[in-house]
Amino acid sequence: MQLSLPSRPPAVLRTLSSAQEPMFLRPALLSRSLCTKDFQQLPNEALSAGTEQRCLQILGKTPLLQRVSAGVLVTLCTSHGTPAFLYTLRSSKLKGRHKGDVSFPGGKFDSSDADAIDTALREAQEELGITLPRSTVWGPMKPITDWTGMVIVPVLANIGCLEDLAANPNPEEVESLLTLPLSLACTSSIRGCTCFRQHGRYAYTLPVFQLPGYKVWGLTAMMTDSALSLLFPGSYHSVLSGSRIR
């Protein structure tokens, strides 16, 4: 979604953790993985052709709803040779309650969009400054209805090697780009959850991914959690599995 805001310097790419930043990828942190005892093997397989085919088959069973409110591109990529999620840090000058949040590219459905996949790809182009072919899409994930009643469709996609994309983020919407390696996303050191109560009783649980200086929460955390469950079936344990809102 475009907003008329003052021009800002080009957004920069920030890697939340990588081999070049051992302060975030220390052995003590890596040893506590919720995925597998030897999780360091997982990143090499996470975006393999076999994983893609398996995900295509699963996501191909999810029907595209005719009436949706928004589409979000859950962006997988390879950053410095490491499979990762790509997020945007929303500009702090945007209006609304989600300014400054860590998010996936996405926005409201437009009448020109054929479906939620078109919405997600169009919004990614507007925010990231890159045109992504529909072939990058693995498929729509389970729709999410937020507290306002909006029906949001997460669309899982592998956009490839980040260094080759030459992203040119829209400074009116995006302050910077952030990557989170899948291996780090699976560790208990950054994963947490928030339990919500209603009328004095437990209502539901939502995941949180806590990183130095940043927090992935809300719908973005739910989409991240669901994507990890899809990528690592049987080994990644989602906090949403016991929640009423799954």
Rank of each mutant, 00 (worst) to 15 (best):
V216N: 07
L3N: 01
S229D: 09
L42A: 04
T145W: 00
N158E: 11
L29A: 07
V151F: 06
V137I: 12
A28M: 11
G149H: 08
L180Y: 01
R97K: 10
Q125F: 09
H98K: 01
Y204C: 07
V72L: 10
G100K: 06
G50D: 09
G218T: 11
D113P: 13
W147G: 04
E127R: 09
G160W: 00
D118K: 05
C193D: 10
L42R: 08
A114D: 11
L5H: 01
Q210T: 02
L178M: 12
L5I: 05
Q198L: 04
A114S: 05
F85G: 02
L228V: 01
H98N: 05
L25C: 08
L16F: 03
M141P: 00
F196H: 12
I130M: 10
P207R: 07
T205S: 10
P143R: 10
G100V: 01
N44R: 13
S69W: 13
Y214W: 11
S79A: 15
L121Y: 00
A116L: 11
G149I: 08
V102F: 01
T179M: 09
T136I: 02
F24Q: 03
H80T: 13
G200N: 12
V216T: 03
L42D: 01
P212L: 06
L5K: 02
F39A: 14
D118E: 11
T88F: 01
Y214E: 08
P43D: 07
P83N: 05
S79N: 07
C186H: 07
T145I: 09
R26D: 12
S17K: 01
F104V: 07
I58K: 10
V153E: 05
D38A: 15
L42N: 00
H98A: 06
K93I: 13
Q57I: 05
V239M: 05
V102S: 01
S111I: 08
I144C: 00
T220R: 03
K215W: 02
L206W: 03
N44D: 10
T82S: 06
V208I: 06
A221N: 03
L184Y: 04
L65A: 15
M150D: 13
F24H: 11
L94R: 10
L162C: 07
S183R: 04
E127N: 02
P207E: 03
A120I: 14
F24I: 03
Q125A: 15
P169V: 09
P43E: 08
R191T: 05
V12N: 15
S183C: 08
A185I: 13
E172R: 06
V12S: 15
L42W: 08
R201Y: 03
G234V: 13
